[in-house]
Amino acid sequence: NKFNKELQWATWEIFNLPNLNEEQVKAFIDSLRDDPSQSANLLAEAKKLNDAQA
């Protein structure tokens, strides 16, 4: 299933962003679980936040 692979990839990527704190990671993962179809958008937002906090 396409969404499942995207969800797994986005989850792994978010867990490995070095500049997000635990609460931010949890919030993004919760959002992914709530709406897996938004995984690409949520990953992009997480990466933006990660870069901003570098």
Rank of each mutant, 00 (worst) to 15 (best):
N1L: 03
N1Q: 06
N1T: 04
N1S: 04
N1R: 03
N1I: 05
N1P: 13
N1M: 02
K2H: 15
K2R: 07
K2E: 15
K2Y: 12
K2T: 13
K2S: 15
K2G: 15
K2W: 15
K2L: 08
K2A: 15
F3M: 09
F3N: 12
F3R: 08
F3V: 12
F3W: 06
F3K: 07
F3Y: 10
F3A: 13
F3I: 12
F3S: 10
F3D: 13
N4W: 15
N4D: 15
N4S: 07
N4E: 15
N4L: 13
N4K: 04
N4P: 08
N4Q: 14
K5A: 11
K5N: 12
K5T: 13
K5H: 08
K5Y: 07
K5V: 07
K5G: 09
E6Q: 06
E6D: 10
E6M: 08
E6N: 06
E6P: 04
E6G: 03
E6K: 04
E6Y: 13
E6I: 11
E6V: 09
E6L: 14
L7V: 12
L7R: 01
L7K: 02
L7G: 03
L7F: 09
L7A: 09
L7D: 04
Q8T: 06
Q8V: 09
Q8I: 11
Q8E: 15
Q8R: 05
Q8G: 05
Q8A: 14
Q8M: 13
W9Q: 11
W9L: 12
W9H: 09
W9N: 08
W9M: 13
W9R: 09
W9A: 13
W9P: 02
W9D: 07
W9E: 12
W9I: 10
A10T: 07
A10E: 02
A10K: 03
A10W: 08
A10V: 13
A10Q: 03
A10R: 02
A10D: 02
A10I: 14
A10L: 08
T11M: 15
T11K: 08
T11V: 12
T11L: 15
T11W: 06
T11P: 02
T11G: 03
T11S: 07
W12H: 05
W12K: 06
W12Y: 09
W12I: 05
W12F: 09
W12T: 08
W12D: 05
W12L: 06
E13F: 15
E13H: 07
E13Y: 15
E13I: 15
E13T: 09
E13L: 14
E13G: 03
E13M: 12
I14Q: 02
I14S: 02
I14P: 01
I14E: 02
I14G: 01
I14T: 02
I14N: 01
I14F: 03
I14L: 07
I14Y: 02
I14V: 05
F15K: 14
F15V: 06
F15R: 14
F15N: 10
F15W: 13
F15S: 11
F15G: 11
F15Y: 15
F15L: 14
N16G: 09
N16Y: 04
N16V: 04
N16M: 10
N16E: 05
N16Q: 14
N16L: 07
N16A: 12
N16S: 09
N16I: 06
N16P: 00
N16T: 09
N16H: 13
L17S: 01
L17R: 00
L17K: 00
L17M: 13
L17Q: 03
L17T: 00
L17E: 00
L17F: 05
P18M: 09
P18Y: 10
P18G: 10
P18T: 11
P18S: 09
P18E: 09
P18A: 07
P18V: 07
P18N: 06
P18F: 10
P18L: 09
P18D: 05
N19Q: 04
N19K: 03
N19G: 04
N19S: 07
N19I: 01
N19D: 05
N19W: 12
N19T: 03
N19L: 04
N19E: 03
N19H: 10
N19M: 05
L20F: 01
L20Q: 00
L20V: 01
L20T: 00
L20G: 00
N21I: 08
N21G: 07
N21Y: 11
N21F: 08
N21Q: 08
N21E: 06
N21V: 06
N21M: 07
N21W: 08
N21A: 08
E22A: 14
E22W: 13
E22H: 12
E22P: 12
E22V: 13
E22F: 13
E22D: 14
E22M: 15
E22I: 14
E22Q: 12
E22K: 12
E22L: 14
E23G: 09
E23H: 13
E23S: 14
E23Y: 12
E23I: 12
E23M: 09
E23V: 09
E23P: 05
E23L: 10
E23T: 12
Q24D: 03
Q24E: 03
Q24M: 03
Q24L: 03
Q24G: 00
Q24P: 00
Q24H: 02
V25T: 07
V25R: 11
V25N: 01
V25K: 15
V25L: 05
V25I: 08
V25A: 08
V25D: 00
V25S: 04
K26I: 10
K26E: 07
K26D: 05
K26S: 09
K26N: 11
K26F: 11
K26M: 11
K26W: 15
K26Q: 07
K26G: 06
K26A: 10
A27I: 10
A27L: 09
A27V: 11
A27Y: 15
A27Q: 12
A27K: 11
A27G: 10
A27R: 14
A27E: 07
A27T: 14
A27S: 13
F28R: 00
F28K: 00
F28P: 00
F28S: 00
F28I: 05
F28L: 04
F28A: 02
F28E: 00
I29R: 02
I29V: 07
I29L: 10
I29N: 02
I29K: 01
I29Q: 03
I29Y: 04
I29E: 02
I29A: 03
D30L: 15
D30E: 09
D30V: 13
D30T: 14
D30Y: 13
D30G: 11
D30I: 14
D30M: 15
D30H: 14
D30Q: 14
D30S: 14
S31A: 15
S31W: 14
S31R: 13
S31P: 01
S31T: 09
S31F: 12
L32T: 02
L32A: 04
L32S: 02
L32H: 01
L32E: 00
L32V: 05
L32Y: 02
L32Q: 01
L32F: 03
L32G: 01
L32W: 02
R33T: 13
R33I: 15
R33D: 09
R33E: 13
R33N: 15
R33Q: 14
R33H: 15
D34R: 15
D34W: 10
D34F: 12
D34A: 14
D34V: 13
D34Q: 13
D34S: 12
D34L: 15
D34N: 09
D35F: 09
D35R: 08
D35G: 03
D35L: 05
D35N: 11
D35A: 07
D35K: 12
D35E: 06
D35I: 04
D35Q: 10
D35Y: 07
D35W: 06
D35T: 08
P36H: 03
P36A: 04
P36L: 05
P36E: 03
P36T: 04
P36K: 02
P36G: 03
P36Q: 03
P36R: 02
S37I: 06
S37N: 06
S37M: 07
S37Q: 08
S37H: 06
S37G: 08
S37L: 06
S37P: 03
S37A: 07
Q38P: 01
Q38Y: 05
Q38E: 07
Q38M: 10
Q38L: 07
Q38K: 11
Q38S: 07
Q38G: 07
S39T: 13
S39I: 11
S39G: 05
S39M: 11
S39D: 02
S39A: 13
A40G: 08
A40K: 14
A40Y: 14
A40L: 14
A40P: 07
N41G: 09
N41K: 13
N41F: 14
N41R: 14
N41D: 07
N41T: 13
L42F: 08
L42M: 07
L42I: 15
L42Y: 09
L42S: 02
L42E: 01
L42N: 01
L42W: 08
L42H: 04
L42T: 09
L43E: 01
L43W: 03
L43F: 04
L43V: 15
L43P: 00
L43N: 01
L43Q: 03
L43T: 05
L43G: 01
L43D: 00
L43K: 02
A44M: 14
A44D: 08
A44T: 08
A44N: 08
A44P: 01
A44K: 12
A44W: 12
A44L: 12
A44E: 10
A44I: 13
E45H: 10
E45T: 12
E45N: 09
E45Y: 13
E45K: 13
A46F: 03
A46L: 03
A46D: 00
A46R: 00
A46K: 00
A46M: 02
A46T: 00
A46S: 02
A46N: 00
K47G: 03
K47A: 05
K47W: 09
K47Y: 15
K47N: 05
K47M: 06
K47I: 07
K48Y: 08
K48W: 07
K48H: 08
K48V: 07
K48Q: 12
K48A: 10
K48N: 09
K48F: 07
L49G: 00
L49R: 04
L49D: 01
L49I: 09
L49F: 05
L49S: 03
L49P: 00
L49T: 06
N50T: 01
N50F: 02
N50G: 02
N50P: 00
N50W: 01
N50V: 01
N50M: 01
N50Y: 01
N50Q: 02
N50D: 04
D51I: 09
D51N: 10
D51W: 09
D51T: 08
D51E: 12
D51Q: 13
D51V: 08
A52I: 11
A52S: 10
A52P: 03
A52Q: 10
A52T: 09
A52R: 10
A52E: 11
A52N: 07
Q53P: 04
Q53H: 05
Q53W: 06
Q53N: 06
Q53V: 06
Q53G: 05
Q53A: 07
Q53Y: 06
Q53F: 06
A54P: 06
A54T: 12
A54M: 10
A54D: 08
A54W: 09
A54I: 10
A54S: 10
A54Y: 08
A54H: 07
A54V: 10
A54Q: 11
A54F: 09
